[in-house]
Amino acid sequence: MTTFHLYSFAAMLLAALGVYGLITRRHLLRKVMALNIIAGGAFLLLISTAYRNQGAFPDPVPHAMVLTGIVVAISATGFALALIQRIQKQLGQRPDQEAGDENPDQTETSRSGP
């Protein structure tokens, strides 16, 4: 059981926790947070691979990958938040009808938490 194994199991645990949250939580904000937790797990895994060989220097490639991954995750999260805000605003203006019968569960979840 090396340090690398410890980190990678922790990463997998974090990702699994995120997946659980994504499936069980109905509130849209919580879903976005769950996705970010999965992302955290993925980044932890990548970062820990940098030092897997216990050499003198950590491998720089995973660092570059995590940096890119963070940029992607942030922009996706920002986009999702903007969409959620927009949906909430439009549903607030026209409370029932249209979106209501198109997608009852989404309507509910975007207004109130579980």
Partner: peptide, 15 residues
């Protein structure tokens, strides 16, 4: 969600 699963796979593969 799909791309994060893919990314996890990439991490494991690189490890």
């Amino acid at each position: 969600f799909a791309s994060l699963m893919y990314l996890l796979g990439v991490g494991l593969l690189y490890a």
